[in-house]
Amino acid sequence: MITEFAFWFIVFMTVISAGTVVLSNQLVYSAVALLFTLFGVAGLYVFLWADFIAGVQILVYVGGILVLIIFGIMLTNRITSVRLSQTNVQQGVGAVVLIWLFIFLSMVITKTPWLTRPAVEPIGTTAGVGTLLLTKYLLPFEVISVLLLGALIGAAVLSRKEN
């Protein structure tokens, strides 16, 4: 009962704050709403028994990406500038695309007979994920570490002052 209530609370928090992210006129409000969306998604991971991914989500998204985004907002927002509208003229078309896309995805979700199988709740997933990363998925793991290094160097080169 209490877990059911917590689940629906997390679902509604995620969806409402995601709506705020795309609809708010103030960019800082969007960033704060994104915080709640990311926490809500981490909560959904906990309900899906993915404890390690939930921790990584909070560490990387909330602790890293969101801080980066807020830094970007502070560096590019002129306080003295006149406040412009945050959305372009395509909002009507965008809303049509949004509704059409959601209806399409809902039909796919409801009409497909998903093959599910009951599972027992694991004690922890960290050991399993680590084993998979170093055996079956060793090549993607190494490739993504090289990609992270490339992104690091690329971001440093791009944001450096030219002299």
């Binding site: 995620t14 969806v15 995601a18 709506g19 992210v21 795309v22 960019l27 969007s30 960033a31 994104l34 969306t37 990311l38 998604v41 998204y61 990406i65 985004i69 970007g72 907002i73 590019t76 412009l84 509208s85 945050q86 959305t87 372009n88 395509q90 909002q91 078309v93 965008g94 809303a95 695309v97 949004l98 509704i99 896309l101 959601f102 995805l105």
Partner: peptide
């Protein structure tokens, strides 16, 4: 729902950082 809202944010926002937030969604 999150995917549709993210696509909506990407196509309607004019600020680059807001577009990035849509991609994160």
């Amino acid at each position: 729902i999150l995917f549709s809202l993210g696509v909506f944010g990407v196509v309607t926002r004019r600020n680059g950082i807001a577009v990035l937030m849509g991609v994160e969604l």
